[in-house]
Design a binder for these strands. Sequence first.
DNA 1: CCTCGCTAGTTCAATTTTTCACAAATAGCC
DNA 2: GGCTATTTGTGAAAAATTGAACTAGCGAGG
Lengths: 216, 216
Amino acid sequence: MKSEKISELTTSRLSVYLRCLNQLAADGERTVSSEGLAKKFHLNSAQIRKDLAYFGEFGVRGVGYYVDELRDHLTKILGLDRPHNLTIVGAGRLGTALADYYRAAQSNFAVAAMFDADPAKIGTLVGKVEVFDIKNFPEIAERYNIDVAVIAVPAEFAPAVLQQITVSGIKAIMNFAPVPLKAPENVKLKTVDLTISLEGLAYFLAQPSPQNGQRR
Amino acid sequence: MKSEKISELTTSRLSVYLRCLNQLAADGERTVSSEGLAKKFHLNSAQIRKDLAYFGEFGVRGVGYYVDELRDHLTKILGLDRPHNLTIVGAGRLGTALADYYRAAQSNFAVAAMFDADPAKIGTLVGKVEVFDIKNFPEIAERYNIDVAVIAVPAEFAPAVLQQITVSGIKAIMNFAPVPLKAPENVKLKTVDLTISLEGLAYFLAQPSPQNGQRR
DNA sequence: CCTCGCTAGTTCAATTTTTCACAAATAGCC
DNA sequence: GGCTATTTGTGAAAAATTGAACTAGCGAGG
């Protein structure tokens, strides 16, 4: 166990490992080796061991990892051992779908509030979550103790929304607007661009290399 | 211009560049330098030049890049100069939201068909797109000339769906199910895991480093 | 026509990330 | 109790990615 700073690639793999462990636990497995995990989930065993070793010595040589124990460790490392209050800014199709998605996914993220600028949407409920006026963001965010915000507004409004979120002191933001945003120093901003991912597929299809009869 | 194989990191940046160029074009800019692009969109100019250089010499020294021209090049490189027919498997909340999202985003991806296993959903319309029985996937995919499939079903069904998609000869797949999948050799599979992205934020919040008074 | 300023393309160095390979450690067995 | 099967944790090599520095080419202005 070192005390270097951990790469984001590593931490997102930790999430994957946690998923895998959950499945193993559901299947009744008590222990698993890095090699076993790797085989079953198409991962690399050396990488699993190294990723885990950044945080401690969780395994037992000759045995592997105790599924439940490692699961607890990862849960704690990822900060999933306590609840998070989420807000989704933008109550359009994507925003409401995300709200439903995160609500359904049983997890430690609770969708506590939504925001929009459209008077027709303000005051309505999405699931059981109220849609508030974006103008009141700071106050409502405070009231609901929001610690994670999701941006699901059209690209042109995203910078302004980001601004409002950061001035409210929220430090973790996930952005679905297809625009490059820049967050202040101590704020974590992750952008997931649904279009870019698709374009990566288009690029792949445009390559001559897979010269088999793929559909176009 | 080399003829190495291009990294996925590079190609996804090309998508970003294309976005930026579209905005510049909308703003009426005729030319832009790598430095100008970098400054404006929080990128690295050397990386821009290098990424572009993999595909040709698109710039003019002393001037920069002609916005329209570079846009055309990138569009072609990314295979966006011809239409793609998309299908979304899973007509639940996420699937329908994605269908709406991709339909609204004016792009070369047309949502041509949706699939589900639920008899209550089969035959209904999402937007103007029909939901078909997943059992008929190969036939319908053929009929609509589908070349990209999106998996938006619960994790436990994802492997079976992937199987059905690949046997139909579709080579480009985007997966939203939170489960590690393994695609055949010549098939491009991209997984976007909405939960993992959130967990990355939770990890960030769990770190002691940003020792300011963030909300928890 | 030459010079100067600017900027692309390219090479090279630095950094990051992945992978390999092995010593150290543990449990089970004889 | 020692031996053997495993399997971790890790140091070092390899690969990939990024970033900086340099070279060469273009256009404008005199």
